[in-house]
């Protein structure tokens, strides 16, 4: 049997707000959260073989500070909070990363599983976010496994987040403990999804774990 690898990857993109409002304890909690996700995935052999991680941060501009790589290759980046909230630029960059990094289905070969995207922000975008979102949805909307946006704090604009995705979480609390719970939820949802690949291989679905008490789905209708 040929064992030459063409692994079906489960890409996971973390879009993290590193604007000035995240300075101090919140950015440290996000930093620890990313490290925790990595450590927990390293404890899960399914995830080690299938999950690929990338980190995109956005402040005055957006940067893909960790390109899509395996859990074993992943090095948690050092995050620094400063500047505004260029969410539109982050979405543009996400689309470019998809173009460059994702392996599509082709004849005779199954490509990557649909990517999971987790966005965390504590404010409203300061750039022109609507055109990038419109483009992203038009080009990529149907090819995403899940796009979960967490708005945290009192300054977040969840109405905008709901224009980005249907899966919007809200968390009033931005304490390190609350953020830790969010990242723990992300980590366990990724692990559950990666383990269910062969059991119920619905490529489109995130196997979301129950939410911790500090978070709730924001299902209200946008105005």
């Amino acid at each position: 049997m040929n064992t030459e690898d063409f692994i079906r990857r489960r890409p996971v993109y973390l879009l993290l707000d590193t604007s000035g409002s995240m300075r101090g304890a919140p950015i440290q909690a996000v930093q620890q959260g990313v490290t925790m996700i990595h450590q927990e995935l390293m404890n899960n052999p399914h995830a080690i073989e299938t999950v690929y991680l990338s980190v995109i941060t956005f402040a005055d501009n957006a940067q893909q500070i960790v390109r899509l790589c395996s859990v074993e290759e992943f090095k948690p980046p050092t995050l620094r909070a400063e500047g505004s909230t260029a969410l539109g630029a982050a979405i543009t960059l996400l689309g470019q990363a998809f173009e460059r990094e994702l392996i599509p289905n082709s004849e005779g070969r199954k490509g990557d599983y649909r990517p999971l995207i987790f966005l965390l922000t504590d404010g409203a975008p300061t750039d022109d976010w609507r055109p990038p979102i419109t483009n992203f949805k038009a080009q990529r909307g149907s090819k995403i496994g899940a796009f979960v946006a967490l708005g945290c704090g009192t300054n977040v604009n969840t109405a905008i987040l709901k224009e980005i995705t249907n899966d919007v979480l809200y968390m009033k609390d931005t304490s390190p403990d609350a953020l830790k719970q969010f990242f723990r939820w992300v980590s366990s949802s990724i692990q559950k999804t990666s383990q269910r690949i062969e059991a119920r291989p619905d490529e489109g679905a995130l196997e979301a774990m129950p939410l911790p008490p500090v978070m709730k789905w924001d299902r209200s209708t946008t105005s």
Binding site: T35, H38, Q39, M42, N43, N44, P45, I48, T57, A59, D60, N61, Q63, I65, V71, E72, K75, P76, P77, T78, L79, R80, E82, G83
Partner: peptide, 20 residues
């Protein structure tokens, strides 16, 4: 420069992958 993000320093305890 504020946007330059350095490589993460190696963690104090090496994170080893769990095996099957």
């Amino acid at each position: 420069q504020p946007t330059f993000v350095p490589e993460a320093p190696p963690p104090p305890v090496r994170v080893a992958a769990t095996r099957w």
